[in-house]
């Protein structure tokens, strides 16, 4: 019996020290993690509602948060914009994205907040294709990247959210196919990652379904 008491005490002491150590490290980094989170949200809002200023943060059904924003148009009218977060399951794990729309449900922008898709395939949905090659980087000829947004997310801009979004296989998006895709309300899938593409489209449509009633008010 004495043995058990001794072992239990040792284990308890060890775990206590461990948790105290972790608690202090957590306390040190807590603010920074919270700051990163809010920064991430701010950046995402800037991407999905370009040019808008957030006027209100509301909650729907007491749980999910959404944002209402406003912008002055060229002829002085106030345009309202909405941003919300939606989730869908992708190829491996949940995909979370933020979607920004105006009052007529035209998509202003999307931003993928969280994904665990396959690197090189599905994860390309959040990658900004570098203009430069590895050799440019080591020889020093690479300059700042002009592009701020992954092409996959960019192509959703100006699509209509009230009509179904179709998926076409045209390879990587470029400016030349932009008009054609916009006319047919479709997006180009990531090569080899159709499931991820579908999941992101599902995620957007699901979100639009949920929030369209609120936006139409």
């Amino acid at each position: 019996m004495k043995e058990i008491g001794k072992s239990t005490t040792i284990l308890a002491v060890v775990t206590l020290i461990a948790s105290l150590l972790l608690a202090s490290i957590y306390a040190l980094t807590k603010d920074r993690i919270a700051f990163l989170e809010s920064e991430k949200e701010k950046n995402a809002l800037a991407v999905v509602l370009p040019g808008f200023t957030i006027v209100e943060t509301r909650t729907k059904d007491d749980s999910s948060q959404y944002w209402v924003a406003e912008k002055k148009s060229k002829n002085g009218e106030t345009i309202k914009g909405y941003a919300f977060i939606s989730e869908a399951s992708g190829y491996s794990g949940t995909i979370r994205c933020m979607i920004g729309v105006d009052h007529s449900l035209t998509i202003l922008g999307i931003s993928i907040l969280q994904q665990t898709e396959t690197p090189g395939l599905g994860a390309r949905s959040v990658e900004i294709a570098s203009k430069y090659t590895f050799w440019d980087v080591i020889t020093g000829s690479a300059k700042d990247e002009g592009e701020q947004l992954p092409w996959f997310q960019k192509q959703f801009q100006q699509l209509s959210g009230s009509d179904p979004i179709s998926i076409v296989k045209k390879g990587d998006w470029n400016q030349n196919m932009a008009d054609e895709l916009r006319e047919t309300n479709s997006v180009s899938a990531i090569t080899g990652a159709t499931i991820t593409t579908k999941a992101i489209v599902t995620c957007i449509e699901k979100g639009l379904n949920e929030y369209s009633a609120i936006i139409n008010e």
Binding site: G120, T133, F134, W135, V137
Partner: peptide, 12 residues
């Protein structure tokens, strides 16, 4: 697999 090294394309 990705034609990349440290995230940069190798052969365009």
């Amino acid at each position: 697999g990705a034609n990349k090294l440290f995230g940069y394309t190798l052969i365009p």
